[in-house]
Design a protein around this nucleic acid. Structure first.
Lengths: 178, 178
DNA sequence: TTGACAAGACCGTCCAGACGGTACAGTAAG
DNA sequence: CTTACTGTACCGTCTGGACGGTCTTGTCAA
């Protein structure tokens, strides 16, 4: 293990996400994050020497968490369930939460649009994997994009869809996914 | 006419969009916009007294343009075409462009997340209208969300989908839309 | 036609404040 | 003695915005 004392790193990451969500992505300053995490600014800079590294940490954390969730969702799901269905279920559950958990993404983009690159790569890889396991490409694309739409609505904290409509959509997607 | 000299307003709006797209949403400063628009900072502040007003202008412009496009698309489309199909065609055409045209949205969100409110309202209204004209709610939701996903991919300048896949998706959606 | 003049459109400068980042001395734990 | 911080002081840069001045345009009386 790298960190003996406590996982300040994780605390900082969580604090950053909180600040972005509550104070708005434009207010994600190092000072705000440090104070929110209960850490001095020096301590923050010790863990993340620059703001860019902080963003990078957020991205990596996010991707790792999703990957883990996908794997464990795979195991927990019904045995006959295909990967696409698992992905749909998982994403829908993610978007069930009223609060957008990843609004720090906007801060990252403002900082440098290249922070999206790993996320895009991750999604490409995921789609590739889905393609290799799903016979019907058309159905796959429709489902994948619809989930993407759901995610974007959650990200933008949009209440365009009611909970009922969301549920109806998910059931329709699972139907399409077979 | 209000503006005698020239429509600095439109030039400024276009310049702002350009700056956001090319220099990144985090670099959308008044100075950058002014110099890009070939206007002094004072001139910019004359047209848009505050940065928030600039953002508001961008949002309103965006919404107005889309509304207009939808109406004229309605007229130009095949006579038997339903509204949902028109919406799909139009959005797909929008996303055909390689450049994300609305990356200034990120700047607006960073400035103040409330700038999304009019956009959300617009989308709600659009969905409402679609619901009243589309018999199959399930199909509508799937199409609407998939288009939303396509838009988000375009916004994030994502190349996860190939052009062929995009075309396949659109044809699938039009099929679903009937 | 002309000249006076008010209003509109725009320029250039300046400034307070916030931000990211540095430097460094101190300290508690192992 | 090292690791993992804390706390404070500070610097340079950039930003939004206020301000006063300037040029252009249209209006209208004479």
């Amino acid at each position: 293990m790298k960190t003996r004392r406590a996982n300040s790193r994780d605390k900082i990451l969580a604090a950053a996400a909180d600040v972005a969500r509550e104070a708005g992505p434009g207010s994600l300053s190092l000072d705000a994050v440090a104070s929110r995490a209960g850490v001095s600014k020096g301590g923050l800079l010790y863990n993340f020497p620059t703001k860019a590294k902080l963003m990078q940490g957020l991205v990596e954390n996010y991707l790792r968490a999703f990957e883990l969730a996908l794997e464990s969702g795979r195991v927990a799901g019904a045995s006959g369930e295909n990967l696409l269905a698992t992905y749909i279920r998982l994403s829908a559950a993610d978007c069930e939460e009223p609060k957008p958990t990843a609004s720090w993404i906007f801060s990252a983009i403002a900082e440098d649009p290249d922070f999206l690159t790993p996320i895009k790569a991750f999604k490409s890889q995921l789609l590739q994997r889905l393609k290799s396991e799903t016979p019907d490409l058309k159905a796959l694309l429709v489902c994948f994009l619809a989930i993407e739409g759901l995610r974007s609505m959650n990200l933008f904290d949009s209440d365009v869809l009611s909970a009922d409509e969301r549920r109806l959509l998910v059931s329709a997607l699972l139907e399409i996914a077979g």
